[in-house]
C-alpha cells in the first residue's frame, strides 16, 4: 500500500510487495542493524498476522477487492491465458511438494528446546537442610538499605567480592552474561542487566535458583542442562543473600515486590 500510486502497480502486486517489504524490513532492522534476528518461530506468526492485516486493508472495499482478485480470476477463467494457467498449475503443486520435501528432510540440528526462563517456584524448598517458605522469604539484609546505608554498602561490597570470586566467570564482570566461559555454555548464562531477568523476580526466587542451580530446576523448565552449580554446596546462606544485594545494586534494578513502598 505504501507503493507509489503513479506507477499504477496492480493491486495484487501491491499486496505482495507490501508483505515482502515488511518482511525485508524486519530482516534488515533486526538481523543487520540491530544484530538480533527474530527467531523463525516468531517470524512465522508475525508474518501470518502481517498478511492478515494486508488482506484486510486490501479487501475492505468492493473495488479494491475486485482489483485484487481480478488477475487471479483471469488466470483461472480467461481462455486466452491458457499457457500461463498451465504453468502456474504446474508450479503450485511442485512448490507444495518441494516445501513438503524440505520439511520432511531429516536435518542435523539439535531439536528445538524450550526453556521456561522463570519456572514457577515451589511454595517451599529444602535448602541447607532446612525448609524455606519461598512465598514469605525475604532477604535478611535488605532492611539495612534504609536502616543503615553504610552497613548496606559494606554488605553489597562483600556480595561483590563473592560474585567476582565465583560468578563472574560465566555471568561476566559487567553482569551482562558475557563472562570468559560464557561462550562455551548452552544455555548461555543469564544477563542480569536485561530488564527481563532479575528485575522481574523477587529475591526469594533468586535465592532458590542460586542455591539449587541447574539440577534444581523443576520439570517444566526442562531440559536440565543448565550448568549453573548448586551453590548451596559452596556458598553460605549469607553469602548468597549478599550476592543478591550486589546483583540488584550493580544493575540498578529493584527486586520485584508486591507491596507498595
Amino acid at each position: 500500500m505504501m507503493a507509489a500510486r503513479r506507477f499504477k502497480i496492480p493491486r495484487l502486486a501491491q499486496a505482495v510487495l507490501t508483505v515482502a517489504l515488511i518482511y525485508a524490513a524486519f530482516r534488515v532492522v533486526f538481523d543487520i542493524i540491530l544484530g538480533q534476528p527474530i527467531p523463525a518461530s516468531l517470524m512465522t506468526m508475525y508474518m501470518f498476522f502481517v498478511v492478515s492485516g494486508v488482506f484486510m486493508v486490501f479487501t475492505f472495499t468492493e473495488e479494491s477487492t475486485q482489483e485484487l482478485v481480478a488477475p487471479i480470476r483471469a488466470l483461472v477463467e480467461d481462455p486466452s491465458k491458457k499457457l500461463v494457467r498451465n504453468i502456474v498449475f504446474l508450479i503450485v503443486p511442485l512448490a507444495a511438494a518441494g516445501l513438503t520435501y524440505m520439511k520432511m528432510l531429516p536435518d542435523f540440528a539439535a531439536p528445538l528446546e524450550l526453556r521456561t526462563i522463570h519456572p514457577a517456584p515451589p511454595s517451599s524448598a529444602e535448602l541447607y537442610g532446612k525448609r524455606f517458605d519461598l512465598l514469605n522469604l525475604t532477604n535478611p539484609f535488605r532492611k539495612f538499605e534504609k536502616a543503615d546505608p553504610e552497613k548496606f554498602q559494606q554488605l553489597v561490597a562483600e556480595g561483590g567480592a563473592v560474585y567476582m570470586a565465583n560468578c563472574q566467570y560465566c555471568h561476566g564482570d559487567k553482569l551482562d552474561g558475557k563472562g570468559p566461559y560464557a561462550a562455551a555454555l548452552n544455555p548461555t548464562p543469564l544477563n542480569f542487566q536485561d530488564v527481563g531477568t532479575i528485575a522481574q523476580l523477587q529475591e526469594s526466587f533468586l535465592f532458590w535458583r542460586i542455591a539449587t542451580g541447574g539440577p534444581g530446576l523443576p520439570k517444566e523448565a526442562a531440559p536440565w542442562i543448565s550448568s549453573m552449580p548448586v551453590w548451596q554446596q559452596f556458598l553460605s546462606e549469607d553469602e548468597i543473600w549478599k550476592v543478591i544485594l550486589f546483583l540488584y545494586d550493580y544493575t540498578g534494578h529493584r527486586p520485584r515486590s508486591w507491596e507498595h513502598e
Binding site: 506468526m45 528445538l112 524450550l114 521456561t116 523443576p218 520439570k219 517444566e220
Partner: peptide, 9 residues
Amino acid sequence: FGIPQVTPA
C-alpha cells in the same frame, strides 16, 4: 504446533 507443548509436572 504453534506453541511449545510443556508437560506439567
